Computed example of a mutant assay.
Amino acid sequence: MTIKVGDRIPDATLYVMSEQGPQAVKAAEFFKGKKVALFALPGAFTPTCSAKHLPGFIEKYDDLKKKGVETIACLSVNDAFVMGNWGKAQNVGDKVVMLADGSGELTKAIGMEFDLTARGMGVRSQRYSMLVDDGVVKQLNLEKPGAFEVSDANTLFSQI
C-alpha cells in the first residue's frame, strides 16, 4: 500500500555518508520534531535526477528554509558511498541530506518501489516529493513512471 497524506513515515534504517564512512540513521529519528522536504528518485547519477531533480532543490534551498523547512533530503535506493559521491559531484554541501536506502527498506515500507529490473537497474524508488512534518506526510507528489512534472522543488514550495 502506498503511503498517503496523513500517514506517519514508518521506521526504517537509512544511511548517510560521513567522514567515518556510512552512518545508520533511523527514519523515525530523522523526521522527528521537524519539517522535512523529502524527494526521492530512481537513481543517483541518472539524467533527470542529476540535471533537474536534485539541482532544483539545491536552487530552492533558501526559499524552502524561509517557509519553515528545516531539512531537505534526497532519498534513493543506492548505497551511502554512491549517494555521498553524487552529493559531492552535485555540490550539495549541507543544503541537502543524501539519504541512502540501499536495500529499499523505507521505499518498500511506504509502497514506493519501482521495478526496473528489465532495464538492468533492479528495484528502485519511484520519483516523488513530500513534505513531512514531525514524521507525518503533509504533501505528496508522486510522478507517473518516466515523468518529471509534479515532484520538483517549485511544486513542493508552492504547497507549503
Rank of each mutant, 00 (worst) to 15 (best):
A100L: 07
K65G: 02
D101N: 08
M98T: 04
K52P: 05
L54Y: 01
Y61L: 04
K60A: 15
A100K: 12
A80M: 10
D62E: 15
I58Q: 02
E70L: 06
G56W: 03
A51K: 15
K52H: 13
T71C: 02
V82L: 09
G68H: 05
V69H: 04
N91D: 14
A89H: 12
L75C: 10
H53S: 09
K95G: 08
K65D: 01
G68F: 13
G102E: 14
Y61T: 11
N85L: 04
L64I: 08
G56L: 03
V77G: 13
F57L: 00
L75A: 11
C74T: 03
A80D: 04
L54R: 03
I58A: 03
E59G: 00
V82H: 00
K95D: 07
K65T: 04
A80G: 11
L64A: 09
A73I: 00
A73R: 14
C49F: 04
A100F: 05
V92S: 03
V82Y: 00
A100S: 15
G87L: 11
D94G: 13
I72E: 00
A73G: 11
C49S: 10
H53D: 03
L75G: 06
Q90W: 07
M83R: 10
D62T: 06
Q90F: 07
A73E: 13
F81W: 12
P55N: 03
K66I: 05
D94H: 03
V77D: 11
K95I: 10
V97C: 09
C74K: 03
K95P: 12
G68Y: 11
V96T: 06
A51H: 07
V97T: 15
D101A: 13
M98L: 07
V97Y: 08
A80T: 10
K67L: 01
E59R: 06
Y61A: 13
F57M: 01
L54P: 14
L75S: 09
I58K: 15
N91E: 14
A80R: 04
V97A: 08
N91L: 05
V96R: 09
V69Y: 01
D79H: 14
E70P: 04
L54Q: 02
D79M: 07
A100P: 12
A73N: 12
K88I: 04
M83P: 01
D79N: 13
D63V: 11
V92K: 04
G102A: 12
K66R: 08
K88M: 08
D63H: 06
K88N: 11
A73S: 13
V77F: 12
V82T: 02
A73Q: 12
K52S: 14
E70T: 09
L75E: 07
V69S: 02
L99F: 01
G102M: 11
W86M: 08
Q90E: 07
D62H: 01
D101Q: 11
G84D: 10
G93H: 02
Q90S: 15
C74L: 08
G56P: 09
H53Q: 11
G84L: 01
A51M: 08
G102N: 09
K65M: 08
I72Q: 00
G56C: 02
G87I: 09
A89N: 14
K66G: 07
M83S: 05
V92D: 00
K66V: 04
N78C: 12
K88Y: 07
P55Q: 10
C74A: 15
D101M: 12
N91G: 11
S50C: 06
G84A: 03
D63E: 15
K60H: 13
V96H: 06
V69W: 03
A89V: 06
D79W: 04
